[in-house]
Design a protein around this nucleic acid. Structure first.
Length: 278
DNA sequence: AGCAGTACCTGGTTGC
DNA sequence: TGCAACCAGGTACTGC
């Protein structure tokens, strides 16, 4: 379930293997992932990889002729492998490199995508994204919006939707999915079902702090491996053992021993502590 | 415009 | 034991 920490882990893991390398061949075994893979990705042939970066849950592989945009969806995985590694089921795309290695995309559920962005263009998928939750000083300068308590408070006013959905909306803040929103709400002491508009300013401050700390900590643990997430070198993430509420309905709260409950929010379940979260 | 609900997809698990 | 039903969930889409 790749959320920001998993995509960041992938980005950090891939960078040393990709930067400066030339793409010698692109193999598309499928026409469609989440969307059709545009033919324009062929413009990356014989190009050197200039940069690899993450924006929200997207991974951008930049060359002079344009950028590949990957999204890992639900089950997507990018690995660096030896060029002679046999194909497995759901291996959909290879970028073959000039040093006997390749970048291979595997995605059983095919919710992921590979798109292309021309130089100077902003792909439509990247247009309406909210601010990055963890912003460096340089990001603060280039981003129109800055993720802090004031921003979250103002944006949530008069919103009736559950705060959980509000925080998972990539237009509010990027990178937060079902796992980390549950953990952040727990750490901030806020129930997932509360209407976003009823969250106090103090709670907004707690939520911002919780989201930032949890995402940052998860990155240091290499993300969360629940079913199939692996870093580009094949290593799993170790954040699962740090989870307080996600997937723990019916079990005791690690803080107060109360039995964790499941709230039905749409089709997704959301786990919380009835005592710690108001 | 905001929001709830649905579809997409496959593999693992559950239930009869 | 075998097979169907269900569940996981990021995101775009639909319709109110």
């Amino acid at each position: 379930v790749p959320e920001l920490p998993e995509v960041e882990t992938t980005c950090l893991g891939l960078s040393p293997h990709l930067l400066g390398r030339k793409i010698t061949r692109i193999i598309r075994r499928r026409k469609d992932l989440r969307w059709p893979i545009p033919d324009a990705v062929e413009l990356l042939l014989n190009q050197r990889i200039e940069a690899l970066s993450r924006r929200a849950k997207y991974l951008l592989l930049q060359a002079e002729s344009g950028s590949a945009i990957w999204h890992l969806g639900m089950s997507g995985n990018l690995r660096i492998l030896s060029a002679d590694t046999p194909i497995k089921t759901h291996d959909h795309v290879d970028f073959v490199l000039d040093n006997q290695t390749l970048l291979r995309f595997n995605d059983p559920r095919r919710f992921g995508c590979l798109m292309f962005q021309h130089p100077g263009e902003t792909h439509v998928l990247l247009k309406d994204l909210g601010p990055e939750p963890i912003a460096t000083a340089s990001l603060r300068d280039q981003q129109a919006l800055f993720f802090d308590a004031d921003y979250l408070f103002r944006r949530s006013r008069k919103r009736s939707q559950a705060v959980k959905h509000f925080l998972m909306d990539q237009a509010t803040v990027v990178g937060v999915g079902n796992i980390y929103v549950a953990e952040s709400l727990f750490q901030a002491g806020v129930r997932p079902t509360r209407p976003a508009g009823k969250i106090t300013r103090a709670e907004c401050a707690k939520l911002v702090k919780a989201i930032q700390e949890i995402l940052q900590f998860a990155i240091t643990r290499g993300g969360t491996t629940l079913r199939d997430f692996l870093a580009p070198d094949g290593a799993p993430g170790y954040f699962e053992q740090e989870l307080f509420v996600y997937g723990r309905a019916g079990l005791g709260c690690k803080n107060c021993k109360s039995i964790l409950q499941a709230a039905d929010l749409g089709t997704r379940q959301s786990h919380f502590c009835p005592r710690c979260q108001k």
